[in-house]
Structures are given as C-alpha cells and as structure tokens.
Design a protein around this nucleic acid. Structure first.
Length: 773
DNA sequence: CAGTGAGCGAGCTTCCGCTTGACTT
C-alpha cells in the first residue's frame, strides 16, 4: 500500500519528482486535462445556468482507471497540477474523475522542478481554489459557445466543415489584413547619397564611408547635388564619441524559442516544439511550454558557475527578468538546459542545434552587458548645407556577445558599422567616389509562422500550448497557406561622381521574394470578411484581453462565472440568429466577362468544394459548366483567359500502349489517367500544357516505384502482395493492409502464411478505417 | 483517392487548452 499518490500533468515531470520524494510517495501523471465538455451538441446546458456537461475525455479513460486504482490504496492524494487556471481545473476534474473526497486530497504547486521547491510545496498544501476553477470554466464555456455557434453558421452561409473561434479567427484576420495592407502599399523611391573619402593614416591610405543626412526625392535633385560636389571641399566638422551598452535578451519562453529557431535555424513552429519535446523527455531541458522568463535559484547559480569557469568573473551579471507578456500565467520556469555544465548534447542534428541555441541564450542572459563606443563623424560640404555622416562602432568589452546575439525579423544589412579611422575636426578629406542610389520603401513584411506567434502573444491571444496547433488549424481549414513566392525584377538608377565626372546607369535588383510566408486563401479572405461584417466584436483584437479581465475578476471571487457568461451569451446568440436570418449565402462571386464562344457570363466563386469557375448560370438556356480552380490560382487575381482554360480539362494528350492518356484535375489535384490507373502530376507540371512524353514519364515513374515496393507476389493469388511501405513491410490484400508479425522474414512468407495472417488480423481492421477519416 | 457545383435529405463537420504515445501504409 502506497501512502501518498502525487499526480502531476507530465510524465517526464513525474519521473524527476519521484526521485526527490522517496519511497513513501508514488508519482504519476494524468497527461493534462482528463475531463472536458461533451462533444455532442453544445456540451453546455444554457437554460440551466450554463451548466457544463463534463465527461472523461475518451483518450484519458485508461489513465483515469489506472489512477483510480492507485488512489484507492493511497492515504493522501497530492494534486500537483500546474499553478494556473487550467491546472486548478485539472485538479478539480481529478477529484471527480477519481471519485475522491475533499479530505483525501491536498493541492500543491511548484514553479520549478527542484528538490527544495518540491519539499516546500509538500509542506504548504492548500485546498482547490474554486474561484480559479470557475475562471477556467468561464474560459472553457465561452470558447465552446463561440466556436460551436459560429462554425455551423459558416457551414450554412459559406461552406461545410469550416470553423471559427476566439483564437483562430483573429489569427486569420491578422494575415488577411496584412495582405490588404500590402495590396494598398505604394512604394516610393528616393535617392540615397553615399561617399567614400580618402585619408592618410600613418602614411597609409584609408577609406571613410559616409552617408548624406538627406535623401532626394527625384533623380534631378540628386544629380544637381552631385554636380555641386564636383568642386566642393570636404572638412571634418565634428567627431562625437559616446559610450553605449547592449544587454542580453531574457531566457527563452515558448514564443521566443519559436521565433529564434525560425530565424536562426529555419525551423517551423511545429518542428521546434517536436524537437524541444524530445529534449525535454530525455531530461536535457526544462519544460518547453511556458510563458515565463524566470530562472530558478538553482539554475542561476549553475549558470553563474559555468560563466566563471568558461569566461571569467568579469562576464557574470546575474539578472532576474520580469515577464511583460499580457495574460502570462507563469506556471513554469523559462526554457533552459537542465544542467548548465552540459554544453551540447549527443543527439541528432536538429536536437543538437536547438539545444545549442537554448544553452547559449540561457548563459548569455546572465552575462555582462557589452560595452561599445559609438562614433559619429560629421563632414561638411563647402558649397552645400547638407552634411555627410560616418558612423562607427567599436566593441570595448564583448560581454554576452561572446556567446549569443538575438536576431531580428528584418535584418537591416545596410548599415555595417565598423571601426573608423581616427579623425579630428578641421581635417580635410579627399573625395574618392560619390554614389546616389535609388531606394524603394519596403512593403510591410508578411507573417511567418513565428512572427504570427509573436503577434498573437502581444495581443494576449492563445497560450504556449496552442500556438503550434493554431497555426496548423488555420492551414488545415484552408484559410491560410504557407509558401514561397518568387520575387520580381526592378530597375533602379545609380548615379556616380568619380574623378570629376558624373555617370548614370540603370541597374536591376530582385525584390519581393517570399520564403515560408503565410498568405490568405480565397476562403480565408471570404470567411474573414463575413465574420468582420457580422461579428466585429468577436474578431476585435481586444476581445480576448477584455474577457481575460473578467476571468481575472472571477478568479478573484468578484464575479460569478455563469453571470459573466450570461451577459456575453444572449447578445451574441441574438447576433447569430439575426445573421442566420438576414444574411444571404456568400460565395465571393465575381463576374469575369463573357465566354467568346457562347456569349455566356463567366464567373468565379467559392463552391462547395472550394474556388471554382462557372460558365453560364441557372437561367441560361444550356446547363452551366463548372471547373475547379488550380492550385496557385485565386478568385482575386484570375483572368478571364485563365479561367476559360480550365474548361479545356479533361484533355487527351495522346495514346500509350494503345490506350488513351487523359489529363485532368480532381479532388487531389491534377492527374494523368491511363487505363484504370491514376497518376498525380508533379508540383511544377501544368495540366493544361503537359505533353504525352511527360505523361508517360509520370506513368512509368509510378510503375517503377510500385515495382520497387513489391517484395513478393504469388501466382496462386494475384490479390495478395507483400509490399515495402513507409513503416516497413506489410501485406496488401484486396485494398486492405495487414501487419507482418515481428520476427518473421517478409520475403520468406508463403502464400499460406499470408492467408493465415490475413485471417487472424481481420477483426481489428475496423479501427484503422475509422482513424483515417 | 480522382472529374463534384441542381435539389432532396441523412449525417457529419466545429471551439481552446492541458498532456503524450499508438499507430499508420
């Protein structure tokens, strides 16, 4: 019989803590929430004071049964879920799911997984905070009501299976509005003047580069300025040196880790989280879903020791950072290495790189400021009022820069500030060359996954555990697409003054190339404008912040949770009803022009299966014709010609093996059809122009792959095949797949063996069919 | 896994936040 059962949320945490507590304590994890609102209907009884209908989450039934068994044999159950709103609710749910009595349980919390912290927690148990639980209930019920009333509205008014919610709809809004901003953006140009001056330093020639403190709006002005400089004299007027300091960035939170891993390592948000999870599970780093920048005392002293050992006493500066993020709950430490003396890990390359980043960031956060010296040199022009300015920067003491420098979203690679030669006021300078380059203002930057997370965090929307899933949801719904887009070439003027002569030339640069950026789709834009029109209050960037304030009131015991929900719900529900009645189905229909052959109107719109083109309408004499838009095309930008091209599909490209080869597009994109087989086109194949040759290549490629996949076939039964798949060898029979028992040699199986395996695994296959849906 | 878009109607979709394996073809 165990005396004490301690329940934490994460199994990795359970393992660590068990080591701290000794044999009187059994530590188990509940794997997060164990209960949730029922999925069918609303899961909330609106008429009865919004009573939630909680059930044990289907995927937690096993855990709950197991915990229940251990709890039965325990004297005291310590509920050690995280110290935040959700954690408090988890404790409360455990009380019910495990059939516990209040006097059997003790609620404890700790912010760091260290022995003193755990011991202290055990010494200071408390009761479950019902106010905090109620704040969570309000959060949960509000999200359910918003999500489960808005989504069905979208099914009826736009397209089935769409979704809307407090978090995802705002994320989509940000991306749509960024695109609108970019569309409205007008680039303007100006002329930036730079000059290189020659001086002698210790009898050696040196160059000083400086920029004019004014930009000219027109080429004419820039030329006039260069003209005036032909005869000008240049004199150093002022040399100003001032000290400057740079401080390190705070330790990582989930959001900042995602941003840095994206910028420095090129990881997607989901990738970063998966790798961090692996590091966490192998005990290399602390918990990776956190909004706190706090380091434990233990971590601080380990870090200090490590800095002294590696860099010396001068490099230490212990700092405690404070979180400024809106709505941060700070239930965990910042993300840091478990042991600071472990400089790297022997893991795969991604884990290694991420660990390295975390180690450096943590170490740097406790290191001294970098001490810099900035120099500004002002250079006067004898026959102009403008000045040239040369900027220099010298590092006097590197401090934290020795290990780590935070990167920025937009690197301004234009000002490379280095060391300047020693100059004194009054010194005359010789102009070597002066150049005026036409510069264009930059359009606003589109969001990457990581910069979207940053923005959401700033708005207080979403939590560390949901950033990655939210980004995946809005892509899965087809609201947003992450892709690369080619840039375009742009001409710019470059004028030069050298050796008393002015030359002009036109050069070209590539600009606007986008890599891994988030773009709204037609559906995303349409859903967004619908929601903004009818539910501006929910889509408001401050909606979450406002309700969070009320959740805090509930947590403080100053507001009754279901009274708050009632205040919100009835007006919201009326909005739903009104929109249901008053708004028409929206499809984003756009008239492109007329079909030259029939004279019928050609439209593009969102159909039941996505963006489509249509010739004629229901009032036309002949039945309307339909065609899906291809990938990369959009209602917004498609032309009449391109839309008409879509109706050329399906097209015959010729014949192969005395059978027709057809090219068309279906639910899963463009494909080739030959005999009874389907062959998907590659990404860069255009179904409208693909040739017979290429089609045959595609057919043969797939046949070849199929062939390589085949380990064994049988002459007795053509339907049974032993194939090599992504997860190893398996048996395929009648379009169903069967696992090969461990230990048997796939190539050595006989037809009889296969039949036996098929027969024996028959009953369990239903599960798989369901899962795939 | 493959071409849909009318109209009927059954039955389904959907939220956010907390946690990992079991499983896939």
């Amino acid at each position: 019989m165990t005396k004490n059962l301690v329940i934490v949320e994460s199994p990795a945490k359970a393992k660590t803590i068990e080591g701290f507590l000794g044999k009187d304590y059994t530590v188990r994890s509940c794997f997060g929430h164990v209960m949730d609102l029922a999925k069918k209907d609303l899961g909330v009884d609106i008429e009865n004071g919004f009573t939630p209908n909680y059930i044990i989450s289907p995927d937690k039934k096993k855990v709950v049964t197991e915990l229940k068994k251990i709890a039965k044999d325990s004297e005291t159950i310590w509920l050690a879920s995280d110290e935040d709103r959700e954690g408090e609710a988890i404790a409360w749910h455990l009380l019910q799911a495990l059939d516990l009595k209040e006097d059997q349980i003790k609620r404890i919390v700790f912010h760091e997984i260290t022995k003193p912290a755990i011991t202290e927690a055990i010494e200071n148990p408390r009761k479950i905070d019902r106010n905090l639980v109620n704040a969570q209930q309000a959060r949960r019920v509000l999200d359910r009501l918003v999500g489960f009333e808005l989504s069905p509205l979208l099914w009826r008014k736009i397209k089935p299976s769409l979704s809307a919610g407090r978090v995802q709809s705002v994320a989509v809004r940000l991306i749509v509005e960024k695109e609108e901003e970019i569309k409205a953006f007008k680039s303007v140009s100006s002329y930036r003047i730079q000059a290189d001056f020659l001086i002698m330093v210790n009898q050696k020639q040196a160059t000083v580069s400086a920029e004019l403190n004014k930009r000219f709006n027109t080429k004419r002005e820039a030329l006039a300025f260069l003209e005036s400089c032909k005869t000008a004299r240049f004199v150093v007027e002022d040399v100003e040196t001032k000290p400057a300091r740079k401080s390190p960035a705070p330790p990582f939170t989930t959001s900042t880790l995602q941003q840095e891993a994206s910028r420095k390592l090129g990881f997607s948000v989901a990738n970063t989280m998966r790798i961090a999870q692996q590091l966490y599970e192998s005990g290399k780093i602390t918990y990776m879903r956190t909004d706190s920048v706090t380091l434990s005392k233990l971590a601080l002293s380990m870090t200090k020791e490590e800095i002294i050992k590696s860099f010396g006493q001068d490099y230490v500066k212990i700092r405690q950072y404070t979180t400024r993020t809106k709505g941060a709950q700070e239930a965990h430490e910042a993300i840091r290495p478990t042991y600071m003396n472990q400089h790297s890990v022997e893991k795969d390359n991604s884990q290694k790189r991420l660990y390295d980043l975390i180690w450096k960031r943590t170490i740097a956060s406790q290191m001294s400021d970098a001490v810099l010296e900035k120099t500004n040199i002002t250079i006067g022009i004898s026959n102009a009022r403008e000045k040239f300015v040369a900027k220099g920067e010298v590092i006097k003491f590197d401090g934290f820069l020795k290990v780590y420098m935070e990167s920025k979203d937009e690197e301004d690679n234009e000002d490379k500030e280095g060391m300047l030669p020693p100059l004194v006021p009054g010194e005359k300078l010789t102009l070597e060359e002066m150049a005026g380059q036409q510069k264009f203002t930059q359009q606003p930057a589109r969001y990457t996954e990581a910069s979207l997370v940053k923005k959401l965090e700033e708005l207080g929307i979403g939590r560390p555990s949901t950033y990655a899933p939210t980004i995946s949801t809005i892509q899965k719904r087809g609201y947003v697409i992450k892709e690369d887009r080619p840039g375009f070439s742009r001409d710019y003027d470059l004028i030069r003054l050298k050796g008393g002569k002015i030359t002009e030339e036109v050069k070209s640069e590539n600009t606007g190339y986008e890599k891994g950026k988030l773009f709204p789709t037609d559906i995303g834009s349409l859903v967004n404008s619908f929601l903004i029109q009818y539910f501006e209050n929910i889509l408001d960037y401050n909606f979450t912040a406002t309700v969070e304030e009320e959740f805090d009131e509930i947590a403080g015991g100053n507001l009754v949770w279901n009274a708050m929900i009632r205040e919100f719900y009835y007006p919201f529900h009326a909005q739903i009803e009104k929109t249901l009645e008053n708004s028409k189905k929206v499809s984003g229909e756009k008239l492109l022009g007329q079909d030259p052959k029939t004279g019928e109107n050609v439209y593009v719109r969102i159909g039941r299966y996505g963006p489509m083109a249509q010739i004629g309408n229901s009032e036309s004499a002949v039945k309307p014709r339909y065609a899906s838009l291809l990938k990369g095309q959009s209602i917004e930008t498609i032309t009449l010609e391109t839309a008409l091209d879509l109706f050329k599909l399906p097209r015959s490209v010729g014949s192969y093996e005395s059978a027709d080869v057809m090219v068309s597009t279906g639910r899963f994109g463009p494909y080739v059809k030959h005999l009874s087989g389907f062959y998907s086109l590659a990404k860069d194949d255009d179904p409208l122009t693909v040739t017979l040759e290429r089609a045959i290549e595609i057919i043969e490629e797939k046949r070849n792959k199929e062939h390589q996949k085949t380990i064994k076939t049988f002459t007795g039964d053509e339907l049974i095949k032993i194939l090599n798949g992504r997860y190893g060898p398996y048996i395929s029979y009648n379009r169903r797949n069967y696992k090969i028992p461990k230990g048997s040699d796939p190539a050595g199986l006989t037809l009889e063996d296969c039949r036996k395996i098929i027969k024996e695994t028959e009953p369990s296959k239903n599960k798989n069919v369901k899962r795939n849906k």
